[in-house]
Each structure stands twice: as structure tokens, then as C-alpha cells.
Design a protein around this nucleic acid. Structure first.
Lengths: 207, 207
DNA sequence: ACCCAGTCTACGACCGGTCGTCTAGTCTTA
DNA sequence: TAAGACTAGACGACCGGTCGTAGACTGGGT
């Protein structure tokens, strides 16, 4: 009896879980409705189309993650690099939890959908770009803070932040492929390395 | 006719192109056959199933890429780190070429299929694991060589190689999502950073 | 207190089309 | 003509999506 029908929310919840578990294209509207315990006929009352559902799931998931990230990354009581480390630890913990819940490391929904849908529907691609832009911006702010405190030698903070997020996506992809969270521990040392000063051109790096 | 029918090869080529362009799940057997100019009825003469086609495409694509990588990475005439740099340059060039051919950065087929299929069919997941294992091994050999020459400070060469490949996958994912190869240039400096010595535990943090 | 249009929510039945797959058969070559 | 190489066409299942309407609720008229 919620003000917005709870059937809609049940569809949303089921869709989010199933998309993380099995992807989008391989998923049918009927299957989503069955999992949600909602008649299929109701689906198109609550959602305009399957794609519109994907967009809504994306938005809801990002809203939740953004809240969590904001809490982690803007906590001025802890040094900026420690905040980043906590972000990685939380990511690892989340993947581990997902694995124990449903037997499978589900990876990052945004990365998953990027590779699966971005060249099928322009709307989803645009939304995913906005999400990753926002993620990078959030990391960038922390990196800039660290640099100002002399804790990171990097000069181009935006590109550095992008690389950190890219590293995270790549490692999570591996975690999903190998169904193992074991190696996500390298996230933090790698982040540290990416945030160190860069040699201007060419050769080796000393300690 | 040819001992291996050329129809089979035409299906393979069309499938490879279409999978890079539109993914696997969203692709129908009929569409592949039409693009290949092969009657749909012939498909199941040449391939056991759609999944078996995917496996074959994967193998063929990897065989080609492995050859190219081997040529690049085992060229003892050039220093190891330069070989790695050339690998990134070639990757960037390949993505750019793909973009100009079909208007879209197609990304890495292995990464794409990892996120799209790895939790649908175990056979594909296993094959993808083998491919990435091999990629990491190839990079690892070069990293070990660089370290022996004192050009890389990293101690765990396997994990370092894995991180380099992860970074590559992450950046290529972004290139695909934003349909832009412009930022793949950060691949090489990031690789350098990942190959530098790691502090054992949170050194950069002085708070 | 009762009723009855009118309105909105919610849904089962169904649509045309496409999916992956298969079989029955036609070609080609020797 | 025997034997393989190849293919047309159709199969049942299922896809995303539509639609007519049942049921719950509303607010005036009586």
C-alpha cells in the first residue's frame, strides 16, 4: 500500500538482482515478472519498455552507490588516501558478499552493462557515461586533496582518477570472470602506484 | 570444394565482425548468415550450435592476437619496456582503425564476452580464463625481463602483469563506452607506474 | 444509508515476429 | 548410382509488447 505501488518496486528489485546475475539481453520480461511475483501484464503498466526498466534500475543502483561513495570519500576526518583505500576495501567486501549470496561474483553492473548494451541503445550509453563521469569526478576530488597534501605526486588529477577507476573496472572484470575476489587486494597498492609521480617520458622508474 | 568450405569461413568472419559490433546475445543466427551470404539452413551443418560458433570465433580471434602479441613481445632486439609500449600503441591503433571502419570503438572482444557470457555458459568462461591467463603470462615474461635489467622495480611480476592487463581492459572499456580512443594514450605511463616498485604498506601516506 | 456512473489500478490473454534447431531433401562429384 | 556436401523450409518455444477489461475506489444524487 505504499504511495508508489510495491509491485513496481518488486519488479525493480528482481530486475536488479537478475541483471547482476545473468545480464540484460539474456533476460526476459516474463522471467523478471515471475521472480518478482508480479503478473507479466502489469509490467507494461509500470514501465514503458524493457529498456526503460534498465534505465530505471541503473538510476536506482547508481543513486545507492553514489550515496555510499559520498559517505566514504567526503569524510574529512580521515586522510584522503585512506578514504580511497576504504573504497577499495568496501568494493572487495561487496563482491565477496555477492559471491556468498548467489555463488557468483557479479562484478560491476555499470561495467557489465557498458560492454553489453552501450552499442545497442544510445540512452543507456549516455546514462552510463554520466555515471562514470560522476565516479571519476568523485575520485578526482580525493586525489586532488591528496596531491595538495603532498601525498600524491601526480599532476593531471583527472586522468589519474580515470585510471584508478579503469583499474578498478579491469580488476573487477577479472574477479567476475574467475569468480574469485581473492586478487582484488591488489587494488590499493595499484592505486598508490598510479597516484605516484610519473616520469615525463620513456625510461625506467626508480623507487 | 575447399577442404574446409569457404562458407564456414564466411560465417566465422561475419560472426566475428558482428559480435564485435553488437555483442553475442543480441545477435541472431539468421542475421549472421545473412551477413555472411550463407543460407541459414547451412549454419547447423558447419556448427553444432550458436555457442559452439562463439567458441570457434573466440579461438580464431585469440590465435590471431596471440601471433601478433608474440611478434611484438618476444622481439629481443628492442628493450622489454619498449616492447610493452609498442603493444599499447598497437592496441590504440587497432581500436582507432575499428572506429574508422565501422564508426564504433569495438573494445576488446575477450573483455566484452567475459562480461556478457561468462555467467551463461561455463565453456566460454573457461576459454576466456585460458586466454587471459595466456595474455598475462606473455606480459609477465616481458616484465620479468625488464625487472632483471633493473628497469622495473616490481617484485611480484605475475601480479604486476595481471594489473597491467586489467588496466588495459579498463581503459578499453572506457574507450568503447565513450566511443573515443583519445585517452588510450595514458596506457603507457600507467603501465610504467604499475611496474615501479611498490611500497610494502601504505608508504605514501604520512598522516 | 444506498446506489450508481466514472475513474484509475492492475492484469490475463494474446499478438506478430524471431529465436535456435532440425529434418528431409537437392545438388555435386566420382 | 552411391556418397557426401550443402540447403530450404518449417518446427515449437519464447520474445517484447498490446489491449480489453475486471475490480477497487470515488463522489455526488437521492
Amino acid at each position: 500500500m505504499g504511495r508508489t505501488s510495491d509491485a513496481r518496486q518488486k519488479i525493480l528489485d528482481a530486475a536488479q538482482a537478475l541483471i547482476e546475475l545473468r545480464g540484460y539481453s539474456a533476460l526476459g520480461v516474463a522471467e523478471i515478472c515471475k521472480a518478482a511475483g508480479v503478473p507479466k501484464g502489469s509490467f507494461y503498466y509500470f514501465f514503458e519498455s524493457k529498456e526503460s526498466l534498465a534505465l530505471t534500475v541503473l538510476d536506482e543502483h547508481w543513486a545507492a552507490q553514489r550515496t555510499a561513495w559520498t559517505g566514504l570519500l567526503t569524510d574529512t576526518a580521515t586522510p584522503p588516501l585512506h578514504r580511497l583505500r576504504r573504497l577499495f576495501e568496501e568494493t572487495e567486501a561487496a563482491q565477496l558478499a555477492g559471491q556468498q549470496d548467489c555463488g557468483t561474483v557479479s562484478g560491476c553492473m555499470f561495467g557489465n552493462l557498458s560492454l553489453e548494451m552501450s552499442n545497442q541503445t544510445e540512452a543507456v550509453r549516455t546514462r552510463l557515461q554520466e555515471i562514470f563521469d560522476a565516479q571519476v569526478d568523485m575520485v578526482e576530488a580525493v586525489v586532488a586533496e591528496a596531491r595538495d597534501r603532498g601525498e600524491a605526486g601526480v599532476t593531471d588529477v583527472h586522468e589519474a582518477a580515470r585510471s584508478v577507476v579503469a583499474q578498478l573496472e579491469g580488476q573487477v572484470l577479472f574477479a567476475k570472470l574467475y569468480n574469485s575476489t581473492g586478487r582484488l587486494g591488489s587494488l590499493w597498492p595499484n592505486c598508490l602506484a598510479l597516484l605516484a609521480a610519473r616520469a615525463p617520458e620513456g625510461t625506467a622508474v626508480r623507487a
